[in-house]
Amino acid sequence: MNLNATMLGQAISFVIFVWLCMKYVWPPLTALIDERQREIAEGLSQMDLAAKELELAKANGEQLMVEAKQSASNLVEQGNKRRNQIIDDAKLEGDTEKARIIAQGQSELESERNRLRQELRQEMSDLVSKARKN
């Protein structure tokens, strides 16, 4: 009987131990486990959201790079057009200035030619008058 009483006492002690664990130990442990599972689930959902935002940011970054390259090429093209326009304007202004200088030179040359003719006529008339007096 001694063996049965010991086994019965151990069984009752084990049942009381299990009941105490279920009453006082198990609920806080399950609460901690549930809270940890919830935190992990939130972390995973935040990670998925961050991954989606990263993909969106990459796509936006690539689009901005394409737009920036296009804008830069447009600016370069406008600069080249403006440079060519300035060169053409300078050539036109140079041609106009050249024509003005040539016209002024021809005018000065013609006036110098006329002055020299007048001087020659004057000298010729002076020589003719001197020759008649002699």
Rank of each mutant, 00 (worst) to 15 (best):
S45W: 03
Q122F: 07
L75K: 03
I12W: 03
N60G: 08
R36I: 08
I12A: 04
L8C: 14
K52L: 08
D88Y: 04
I12R: 08
N60A: 12
R132W: 07
R113A: 02
W19L: 15
F14V: 10
N74P: 00
N80Y: 12
L64W: 07
L92I: 14
M47D: 04
G61N: 11
M47Q: 12
N134K: 06
Y24D: 07
K23M: 03
E35I: 02
N134M: 07
L64C: 10
F14T: 13
Q63G: 04
R100A: 15
A90D: 05
A99F: 02
A57Q: 09
F17S: 05
M47F: 04
E112M: 02
D34Q: 13
I101W: 01
I102W: 02
R113P: 00
S107W: 01
V66F: 08
S73R: 13
P27R: 03
S13M: 07
K23W: 10
L49A: 03
V66L: 12
M47S: 11
L92F: 10
V18I: 15
E67L: 11
P27C: 02
S107V: 00
M47P: 00
N60D: 13
G79A: 07
P27D: 01
S71C: 11
S71D: 14
T6L: 15
L120K: 01
Q37I: 15
A103M: 05
M22H: 04
Q106S: 05
R117N: 04
Q106K: 13
L92H: 07
Y24F: 15
K58V: 12
W19A: 15
K98E: 03
L75D: 06
E123F: 08
P28S: 09
Q37H: 10
L32Q: 14
C21F: 15
N74I: 12
Q122D: 10
L56E: 12
D95P: 01
L3T: 06
Q85A: 14
R113N: 00
Q78D: 14
M124K: 08
T30V: 12
E119V: 07
R83D: 10
L8S: 15
